[in-house]
């Protein structure tokens, strides 16, 4: 009965959409990278860097949107590093990605300690406020869930459509997908594989950083260590779950977020008093793994994912 009550509660759905938002940003970012043929394991660290950069910008007195922009630029800078090492230099994408994650995370923590050496509890900023869409926000259940969120959440959902349009309806998107399927086809049609792949990695990394910034600027209002907490890795799985398609991947993000919102609420039921809370924490991950197994058996991996391309090599 408890489960039923939770699912009929508007706050549950609102929480699911809120939790999904940063995942959608970062998942779309990773998806663009992988569609171009580059696995970006820098995602976790880039989210940390984005979370810090956005928050710090606002803390220093700049506007919220300036914060989002700065976060994105910082993400793009780390994306550039990843792109240079993996695309023209053709280094191992796994190693570079993990390196970028370590570097970005450590840089963010270091900058935090440098700028706020004396602080024990991190200062709060004034975050994005919910924007109620007139009329729609009054709808039962979906009203509060979808139409009383912050601007960043609306942006996340708009980006699903934008990325889909980009990939499937524009020449650039076609080139990105072809670079991930067979870079030789891109080269033979007179385009630069290097430019397309680097561009995709840099743009995708910018989105990842905005996903991180969502955490500090729209969810928690401050920056603390370990706050990204594996969300980047979840996004890597969500891309697979979504079979490298933006809509399905975003749906996966929503599903995962719903499980997460659900487990918090289950902890507060009578069952939560008996069952150790760690088991509840596991719920979204276990259910995601099950969903991954069910959904992605026949997924078509971009054929050239993780394959470096060197022009003029025999």
């Amino acid at each position: 009965m408890d489960l039923f009550d939770i699912l009929l509660n508007a706050s549950f759905w609102a929480a699911a959409v809120r939790i999904a938002s940063p995942l959608i940003f970062a998942t779309l970012g990773e998806l663009i990278c992988e569609r171009a043929g580059v696995l970006n394991l820098g995602i976790e660290g880039i989210m940390v860097a984005g979370a810090f950069a956005g928050w710090m910008t606002v803390y220093l007195g700049f506007g919220l949107w300036t914060g989002v922009l700065v976060a994105m630029l910082v993400g793009m800078a780390f994306g550039f590093l990843h792109a240079v090492l993996t695309v023209p230099f053709g280094l191992s994408q796994h190693v570079v990605g993990l390196g970028v994650t370590l570097l970005a995370t450590a840089t963010a923590y270091f900058a935090y300690r440098l700028s706020l050496p004396e602080v024990t509890s991190p200062p709060k900023i004034e975050p994005f406020q919910p924007l109620e869409i007139p009329l729609l926000a009054k709808l039962p259940l979906i009203g509060p869930a979808f139409f009383a969120q912050t601007a960043l959440t609306y942006l996340a959902f708009a980006l699903i459509l934008a990325v889909w349009l980009l990939l499937y309806r524009t020449p650039l998107g076609l080139a990105i997908r072809a670079a991930g399927e067979n870079p030789a086809s891109v080269e033979a049609q007179g385009l630069s594989v290097t430019a397309i792949r680097m561009g995709a990695v840099i743009a995708g990394s910018g989105l990842m950083a905005v996903g991180g910034a969502f955490l500090t600027m729209s969810a928690f209002s401050s920056f603390f260590f370990e706050m990204v907490n594996g969300r980047g890795w979840i996004c890597i799985a969500l891309v697979v779950f979504g079979a490298w398609r933006p809509g399905k991947a975003a749906l996966g993000a929503l599903l995962f977020a719903a499980f997460d919102a659900l487990q918090v609420r289950l902890q507060q039921t009578p069952m939560g008093a008996v069952v150790p809370y760690q088991l509840f924490l596991m719920v979204p991950y276990v259910l995601s793994i099950l969903a991954l197994i069910l959904m992605s058996r026949r997924a078509e991996v971009p054929a050239a994912l993780m394959m470096p391309f060197n022009k003029g090599e025999r």
């Binding site: 080139a175 072809a178 030789a184």
Partner: peptide
């Protein structure tokens, strides 16, 4: 030099229009 997962038309079209056209 074809991308197997794309359609014939997509393969032919690739690179024929300016990348940033809508």
């Amino acid at each position: 030099t074809l991308a197997d997962n794309l359609s014939v038309l997509d393969n032919v079209l690739l690179g024929t229009r300016p990348l940033f056209s809508a």
